[in-house]
């Protein structure tokens, strides 16, 4: 009997261990899913301000944390342009300058409805951002329903479009 208990315990430990190996240690689940968007106020590209109230619209939208110095952000840029034809995308540029952003957009286009500058990275922390790029989908009730970490590739586009269409 005691051996059966021991075997069951060992087996369950190994199973848990092997299940854990499948997890990506770099992927940290967002703690903000199903929560309302955090409050923020940032200087914007049009010399006004970009704040949480700009996101309080009755439609589905995306918010993308990016920077011109971030190579994966350039990888996903063409996909953001595609998404911006159907949905509003707002951008938060982390530790970046207006000049660099404008140079980049003049070459590759601007998918964003509005851009805010997070010069000290504190707004990014408030959103639980830990790397660039990160994209959040916000529903009509201003709740965060999905967070994508890393560049949005063609493969990710299918999943993101599915979520967007489901919540439309």
């Amino acid at each position: 009997m005691k051996y059966i208990i021991l075997i069951v315990l060992l087996l369950s430990t190994f199973l848990l261990f092997f299940e854990g190996l499948k997890n990506d240690p770099k992927l940290i689940p967002s703690n903000l899913i199903s929560k309302k968007i955090p409050k923020f106020k940032l200087p914007s590209l049009d010399n006004r301000s970009f704040e949480d109230s700009d996101l309080r619209t009755k439609d589905l939208k995306l918010i993308n944390f990016f920077a011109s110095w971030c190579p994966p952000c350039k990888v996903e840029h063409s996909n953001l342009i595609k998404l911006s034809q159907r949905f509003k995308i707002f951008g938060i540029a982390k530790k970046d300058t207006e000049k660099n952003i404008e140079t980049w957009f003049s070459q590759m286009g601007n998918p964003y409805s509005k851009i805010g500058f997070d010069h000290d990275g504190m707004v990014s922390i408030n959103w639980g951002v830990y790397g660039l790029p990160e994209t959040f989908i916000i529903d009509k009730e201003q709740k965060i329903i999905y967070r994508h970490v890393g560049a949005i590739t063609e493969k990710d586009m299918k999943k993101i479009k599915l979520i967007l269409d489901k919540n439309k």
Partner: peptide, 23 residues
Amino acid sequence: CLVCQNEDIQNSNADIAKDLRIL
């Protein structure tokens, strides 16, 4: 630290660790 394996923010060179130390 969120981007390093098992390192605290006090001893990490990562950008996010620095931001968290400042916070």
